[in-house]
Design a protein around this nucleic acid. Structure first.
Lengths: 198, 198
DNA sequence: GTCTATAGGAAGATAGAC
DNA sequence: GTCTATCTTCCTATAGAC
């Protein structure tokens, strides 16, 4: 095996862990399976990370970063307010459908963190970032389109984040039932109503 | 130890497992800890259940039953439509605040089931029941209060279920931030808008 | 139906050669 | 920095006495 600097190996192992966990689930992913996925021996794993928990910390921060980037890109401002909401939600939704396992993983990691003493802050940070991402979008719309809210922006941001989260989980569990397109239409119209003037 | 019929022991062990899992998390709960929580030896566990998976199947169906009962009671019809939505959501929310660990457990069990081959149907059934619970409420309101929807009832039901689910998870992760009451007010108003005539 | 004792295996982490 | 081999611990599940 090539001899790489530790930082690079850590990156490789983190990405391998994300693939393995998305495929097999967090509890089923062992340090051995991660090392195998990365194509290195178990000892290399422990050379780069003191413990499995240290790796998982790296996984959570990395995947949360991925996720926020995806959402930020999907929800970028467009020509009109309605178009922003409709196209943004559609783009986000296309990503969920294309990568369901990765999205499932974000939920698993949240719960892993909440159940591991000393890791709760990682779960909280994850959900704070979701809300902040929506808050940024709202602020952009406020400035560029003169959006006015009848509810404080942080309230709307957290609500939209929670709603998106719930819809995503619902889809991941129940799958693409016949009614799903109707639900998305309803949600989109609903969201548009929430961020536009009454 | 008293000699009890198997069915009764199974009930005791299932309840003990729910307590242990709500306290320690699903992956941290072992057959040993469940037996200890129930006050019996490990062999009694394996006398009543062939395997840990068989117990978890019992846990999922039991806790989903609990949960649906809670939601159904919270969301029962009241004098007016607005009161039904407001009081119903408030009652549900009081339960979440009073028993956060149990609610957290429902999410963990969903993911456990989705990751265990042959158990996916338990997760789906869980979420189908959530949607059915809302559908029943809508049907009741339609009959007793002449409610009319501008969107098909199953669509609204699934949407409300997903929204409640997302808000609950958001609360469980981020806790009772100062803004939470405002969010609930927004949600309540929003829900009322969704089920009333335009 | 319940117990003590243990088989059998898999996981996280380490030792020491190269 | 990477490897093979191993230690230690903890789990699920079973055997067999009472």
């Amino acid at each position: 095996m090539a001899r790489l600097p530790s930082a690079e190996r850590r990156r490789q192992l983190t990405e391998a862990a994300i693939r393995a966990m998305a495929r097999d689930g967090v509890p089923n992913t062992t340090t051995r399976s991660i090392a195998a996925e990365a194509g290195v021996s178990l000892s290399v794993f422990h050379y780069c990370f003191d413990s499995k928990q240290e790796l998982i910390e790296s996984v959570i921060t990395t995947i949360t970063g991925h996720y926020v980037t995806v959402v930020k890109d999907a929800l970028r401002p467009r020509a009109t307010l309605e178009e922003t909401v409709r196209a943004g939600f559609q783009a986000y939704w296309d990503h969920v459908r294309a990568h369901p396992d990765e999205h499932m993983l974000t939920y698993e990691l949240t719960q892993y963190a909440l159940r591991r003493p000393g890791f709760e802050h990682l779960a909280r940070r994850q959900y704070e970032l979701y809300a902040e991402t929506y808050a940024d979008l709202i602020e952009q719309l406020r400035q560029t389109m003169g959006l006015r809210l009848h509810v404080p922006a942080p309230v709307v941001a957290r609500y939209l984040a929670a709603m998106t989260d719930g819809l995503t989980l619902n889809y991941l569990v129940l799958g693409d039932a016949a009614a799903w397109n109707d639900i998305l239409d309803t949600v989109t119209a609903h969201m548009a109503g929430l961020v536009s003037e009454p």
